[in-house]
Amino acid sequence: MGDKKINKPRRIIIREEYCMGCRLCEVWCIVAHSKSKDIIKAYKGQEPRPVSGIYFEERGAISFTLQCRHCEDAPCLEACLTGAMYRDKKTGMVLHNKDKCVGCWMCIMACPYGVIKPDFKEKKVASKCDLCIEREFPACVEHCPNEAIILVNKKGERIDKE
């Protein structure tokens, strides 16, 4: 699982009224989760392109981005048949261990936000937002040009990238 840099509870808040529909969040999510962390390599097919942890929804004038809410009482955890979906003790975040996952989609059935995607790249596994645990700051929030997604701490206070 690499070095986990985030060690405090935090949460992404979605402000759809600010979303311009540019989908940069999705692009940078993919880059952040690629092997090279390089936008050209991640997109030009020199390596398998990761599944983004984002559902981008758009219709007419409305658009917004949606990622795992890291629920306090997460239905995906109770539905998971393998323990692949687990709660990180330090941060309270809901994380996913691809090695344990068998792709049974019980979590997809249970998540009321519909934010878990099936990933068929290697073996069949579930895939969702990990709040960029291996980075210091979520890539989507960092690159949103209009603050349509912001990061907050447990008390709801905004956290900005240093």
């Binding site: 219709r59 949606l66 809410r69 009482d73 936000y113």
Partner: peptide, 20 residues
């Protein structure tokens, strides 16, 4: 997706604490 849901309901989903 969540987009088709009434805006008020959706707001409560994306702003709130996550599922409790």
């Amino acid at each position: 997706g969540l987009l088709v849901l009434p805006a008020e309901y959706r707001k409560h989903m994306v702003r709130g604490e996550g599922f409790t």
